[in-house]
Design a protein around this nucleic acid. Sequence first.
DNA 1: TTGAAAGCGCTAACAT
DNA 2: ATGTTAGCGCTTTCAA
Lengths: 352, 352
Amino acid sequence: MADETRPTRAPTAEDVARLAGVHRSAVSRTFTPGASVAPQTREKVLEAAATLGYRVNFLARSLSHQRSNLVGLVVSDIDNPFRAQLLAELGTSLVASGYRPLLLPTERGGKVARHIDMMLHYNVAGAIVTDDASPAEIARQCADHGVPLVLINKRPVSDTVLNVSMDTETAGELAAHALFDAGCRRVALASQRRSSHSIGLRRSAFWRACERLGIEIADEYFGDLPNYEGGRAAADAFLADTIDVDGVYCANDYLALGFIDTIRHLSALSIPGDLKLVACDDIPEAGWLAYDLTTVRQDPVRTADAAVNGLLARISEPDTTALPVVVDVHLVKRGSTALTPPKPRGQARPPL
Amino acid sequence: MADETRPTRAPTAEDVARLAGVHRSAVSRTFTPGASVAPQTREKVLEAAATLGYRVNFLARSLSHQRSNLVGLVVSDIDNPFRAQLLAELGTSLVASGYRPLLLPTERGGKVARHIDMMLHYNVAGAIVTDDASPAEIARQCADHGVPLVLINKRPVSDTVLNVSMDTETAGELAAHALFDAGCRRVALASQRRSSHSIGLRRSAFWRACERLGIEIADEYFGDLPNYEGGRAAADAFLADTIDVDGVYCANDYLALGFIDTIRHLSALSIPGDLKLVACDDIPEAGWLAYDLTTVRQDPVRTADAAVNGLLARISEPDTTALPVVVDVHLVKRGSTALTPPKPRGQARPPL
DNA sequence: TTGAAAGCGCTAACAT
DNA sequence: ATGTTAGCGCTTTCAA
C-alpha cells in the first residue's frame, strides 16, 4: 500500500503532534523562536518532527502572519557585471537574514507594473529595486500597500522609501582629479544616450568637478545602452570626430570596456599614451590585464549590505522616515591613467 | 479616521463580494481560469475588484492548492557571464510562464541542504539547479517530497529528474576539429583543478576527439576555479613549463579570458600566431575585440527554455520518466584560431 | 449558475 | 506550560 513511488503528503504539525503525543500548538510553539515550551516537550516534538521529516509550512505561516518573508528583487541588466555582483550579494544577504528573494527580472521595456502586481500577490515583506526603469509608480504602489521599499542608485521618490546610492558627487571629483593628475586638460565624456538617473548624476558631478579644476570638456559621445556595445558605439563616434582631447571619462566600466577595445583595436591611439581613461564601478573586468582601467570603485558588497540592512530596518519600523544612505567610493588607480613619457611626435592625438 | 498614511489592510475576496453584492465564492470563481460565472456577475466582481485594488492572495491560494507557483532557482557562480545570462533567461522565462523564481544563491562551499529545506518550506512547484555542488542529495530530497526537479549541465541522478545539458560530446569534437583545422597537432588543456561534472565531460570528450584526429595532448594545466583567475593561474603554469605546443583548449570561456590575458600580456607568445585557442560557452566576452575567441557555443536562451519547458512538463506529469534533453552546440570561429603566415623564426613556441 | 460550508496548515489570544 | 479555539484568505465540493 505505502508505495515508495507515490510521495506521501508532507507531514503537518498535526502529524507531529500525534506522534509526539502533544497538541498541535505545542508543535507550533516549538518552531516559534520566542515561545515557551517545556524542554522535554520540545524534545519530544523535535524528535517526532525529525523522524517525520516535518517542516513548517511557510505559506500557512505567512497567511497567519499576514506577511511573508519573501522579498521582491527587481533587477534589470544582469549582464552588467556590477549588477550581477550586486544581485548575488543581495540574494545571499537576504537569505542569510532569513528572507527569501523573489527574483523579478525586468526585460528592457518590460512592464514593471507586472512586478509590483506580483509582489503584492505574494504579500512580500519588502522589495529592493535596482532596475533602470523609472520607479515612481512602483514606489507609490508599494507605499500604498505598506510594502517597505529600497531603491539602489535610483532617483529618490519619497521619504518613506529608502534610497541607497553611491556617492556620485565624490565619484565625479575623483574621476576628474585622476584625469587632471594624469595631465589631462581637455577631455571627452562617454555615456549612454537614453537618460538614466544614476548616469545623469555621474555626468553632472564630473562636469562640475572639471569646471573647478579647469579641465575643459570638449564633447560628449553616446552609445545606446551603458554596456560593451554602447561603449563601442561611443568610441566610434569619438573616432569619427576630429576634436583633440587627452582624456575620456566613461560613465561606467562596462561601457568603458567597449570604448577601450574600439580605441585599442580600431585606431592608432594608445591608452594611456595618447588618451587617459577613467570610468566608474570597478567591475572585475576593470582589473583585467586587457583593460587595466582606472576607475571609481563602488563596492557591491557594501551596497548590498546597506540595502538589506536598510530594508530590515524599514520592515521593523515602517513608519520612520528613511534617511538616504550614501555608499562611499574611492579611486582605484590603474594603467589607463599612467603617466607616460612624452610621445616622440609630441602630439596628444595623432591623426588616424 | 481613514488616514492616508496608515495603509489599510489589503482588500480580501470578502470585501470585493460585499461591494459587488455577491458571495465570496463568486469572487473566487471570477479569478479562477476555468470556472463558471455568469458574465454579468463576473462584470460586477471585476469592477468591484478594480475599485478596491483587489489582488488574489497567492499565499492563501497556494495553501488551498497544496502547492505554490514558486520555483526554486538554485544558482552558483553568478560572476560567470554564462551563468548570469542563464539566470536572467530562467527568471524571465519562469515569470512568463506564470511561475515565480525563488532565488537561492549558493556560495562556494555553502550548504545546499539549506536550500532544499527552504524550498520545501515554501511548497515550491519545482526547482531548477545549475549549481556546481553535487546535486545527489538535493535530488533525492526533492524526489522524496514530490518536487519536480531539473538539473542543468549536471550529472544525472535518476530518471525522475530531468537533465538538460549541452552536447558535450559534439563540443569536444568541434573544439578538436577547430584546432586541427588551424594546424594544431600538439595541444594542451586548461581547466579547473576541482573536479566538476560538466568540465570533466568537456575534457574527456575533447580528449577522445583529439585521439581520433591524431592530435597529441601534451599536458594539462589547472586553475583553482573555472574563472578569470583560474585561467591566469593555468596560463602561469603553462608558461612555466617548457613543452612545445601549438594550441590550447580551455574548458570554458570565462577561464579562457584569463588564459589569453596572461599569454598576451605576460609572455612573448602571440595568439593565434604562436598558439591557437579554443574554448567553450560563447559568452559575450568571447566576441569582444580584446579576446576574439573561437569557441563552442552553448545558447543560454535555448538552455533556459528547455529547462523551463521541461519543468512545466514534469509539473503537469510528474510520474513520467524524464528523458534527458541535449542542447545543440556549434562552433563560433573567431580570430584565436585564424591561420597565420608562418612565423619568421619558424618556431611554434619561441623561448621567453 | 450560485450560496453554503468545510478545510488547506499554521499562529495567537485565551483559558486552564 | 499546555490545550482550546478562532481565525488568516482562498478554493472547492455539495446543495439548491
